[in-house]
């Protein structure tokens, strides 16, 4: 039964996926392209592109979209639920452990060490994001003059707005509309 197989395969991906959504891509590829031949490699590349483009967590996007291509909406639901089940069980066990015993020396120590680590990872992601926003490339290009004026403008205005405590959802919606409007203006010029 395809739905059960989808559920199990995506549960397996979730168990072996360490390090967030991007890390799940090669595992999903191995399952849906190499092992089961449900999709071709080029279809999988499409899935990757769409998952990156669409708002929402990238791993969930990929599971949903792959499931949908393989077996329609029920396939999407089975793959997504499969993908989340290991996290659900493990998440609840860990949350219980940490919240119940969070004030016991060793666990307090681990959390005290992890909080600064997470701050560093956020800052690191932030800088990669700035590069992507301003230069439309993953890595800082050799020629810095390729900087995107639309990127500078929206980023600067958003930064001011967010420092003034603008609502986050409103800000994301407004910056999307600004991107669309400025893109159209640029096209007309």
């Amino acid at each position: 039964m395809i739905y059960l197989t989808l559920f199990l395969e995506f549960a397996k991906v979730a168990i072996f996926c360490v390090g967030g959504g991007y890390a799940s891509m090669p595992l999903i590829q191995a399952a849906v392209v190499d092992t089961y031949h449900w999709l071709t490699l080029s279809e999988f590349v499409d899935i990757f592109t769409i998952s990156q483009m669409t708002p929402g967590p990238i791993g969930i996007n990929a599971a949903t979209f792959a499931g949908m291509k393989i077996a329609g909406i029920p396939g999407a639901v089975s793959a997504t639920i499969g993908f989340c089940t290991p996290s659900f069980i493990l998440g609840i066990l860990l949350a219980r452990l940490f919240f119940k015993y969070g004030d016991i020396g060793p666990i307090r120590g681990i959390l005290n060490g992890l909080r600064p680590a997470v701050i560093a990872l956020i800052a690191s992601a932030g800088i990669s994001f700035i590069v992507l926003a301003l230069w439309n490339e993953e890595k800082l290009p050799a020629d810095l003059s390729t900087i995107d004026p639309i990127g500078i403008l929206i980023l600067a205005v958003s930064l001011i707005a967010v420092r003034q405590k603008a609502g986050v959802i409103k800000l994301l919606a407004a910056s999307g509309i600004a991107g669309l409007a400025l893109g159209i203006v640029k096209q007309l010029l």
Binding site: P55, A133, L155, V162, G179
Partner: peptide, 13 residues
């Protein structure tokens, strides 16, 4: 264009 704008907003956040 729309996604590019949203991505800049997310960067600010």
């Amino acid at each position: 264009y729309l996604l590019k704008g949203m991505q800049c907003g997310a960067t600010a956040l």
